[in-house]
Design a binder for these strands. Structure first.
Lengths: 188, 188
DNA sequence: CGAAAATTTGACATGACTCAACTGGAGTGG
DNA sequence: CCACTCCAGTTGAGTCATGTCAAATTTTCG
């Protein structure tokens, strides 16, 4: 895990082993079983999670009972409900493991502490946030301008690994299509 | 402008006048007429723009000829095509002034220079980026789960100033509704 | 005032949804 | 190893939200 973190963070700035050690000490390694919740809907998101191994989904259950998936995340991604994490408000969605998943989880206080001790980390997260913004914009672009069929084919093409690790009805939810209609799309 | 920038940045970290002066010197003040382009579609986005006064839209023209607005920005917002700015690729959309608009525009090189001279700026943009991510997630949430009518009422409620400064057909485009259907929604 | 731009109206078309029933594979337990 | 259940996926009929297109009307502004 330390080695993985080292490699990962050095994509963004030059961190040495002392830095990594400090970051590591300010977090907690935890493993979640399949279906276990990292964050429950309507509770405060206390951690930013670095996924070392596994796969999670972020989703909400509507009043109608419908599930609505807003994101998947895998190895070497960060996941959190930023709004809830930063503002300490109740999260509108949940984060759930879809496989056995190992993470490094860091509280807001510890993260703030790390930012002050390791200014490079500020830089790394500035860049990571910008990358996430770019990804978000691309996803948005797709959703605004493309029909269901194009969204699906784009998804399969861009994230082939996901379409294998995740059941079809979850992909449908992520793409904002009904499972029935996705099935029809696939028939072609 | 300097004073505005000072106030704005001090929301995120403690900058003194020397910092602001340096930032100011690394950018260029420019005023764009109504309808003038800050960035043209299919060209590299050379600047990050801090809007001091005015209003812009970010949009693309599809092959079909349709215009598609992805964002508006006003006073005290930053606007850029991040993907194009960072990766120096051609921008898929344009940025155009909808009123006479005054900005401080900073190139990537100068911004990098500023980051190295003023580490606090790294922190400020880390936070700004996170805030943008939160805003993006909220917008996405709306688009995924709400019908046209709810999106429109949410927009009017949350951004009443925009619905006055921007023509209706542009709001329709931003909300991904046809102008005709928005008109029908408003009839009620 | 007059032209161009924005908005509205109405007839018709369609992508995507709902709901209910059916199929098939993956356990699970006797 | 069969019978049973459960869940994901498929199919089909009917429906609805929203889009398209073309024309009429209103507003804007030089």
């Amino acid at each position: 895990m330390k080695n993985q973190l080292y490699k990962y963070l050095n994509r963004y700035a030059k961190f040495d082993n002392v830095d990594i050690e400090l970051i590591y000490k300010n977090g907690v390694i935890q493993t979640y079983d399949n279906k276990e919740f990292l964050l429950e809907q309507n509770s405060v998101c206390k951690y930013k999670y670095f996924i070392s191994k596994g796969l999670v989904r972020q989703y909400k259950v509507e009043d109608s009972g419908n599930e609505n998936i807003s994101a998947f995340a895998i190895e070497n991604w960060w996941i959190t409900n930023l709004d809830s994490f930063i503002n300490e408000t109740n999260s509108l969605n949940a984060i759930q493991a879809l496989e056995e998943t190992t993470v490094l989880q860091i509280t807001k206080e510890n993260l703030e502490h790390l930012y002050s001790k390791i200014p490079k980390l500020e830089r790394a997260f500035r860049i990571i946030s910008e990358n996430m913004l770019i990804a978000f914009q691309r996803k948005n672009e797709l959703h605004m301008n493309k029909n269901s069929e194009k969204r699906y084919y784009n998804f399969v093409e861009k994230l082939p690994n996901f379409s294998q690790r995740v059941p079809q009805y979850m992909i449908a939810s992520y793409l904002n299509i009904t499972p029935e209609y996705l099935s029809e799309i696939r028939k072609k």
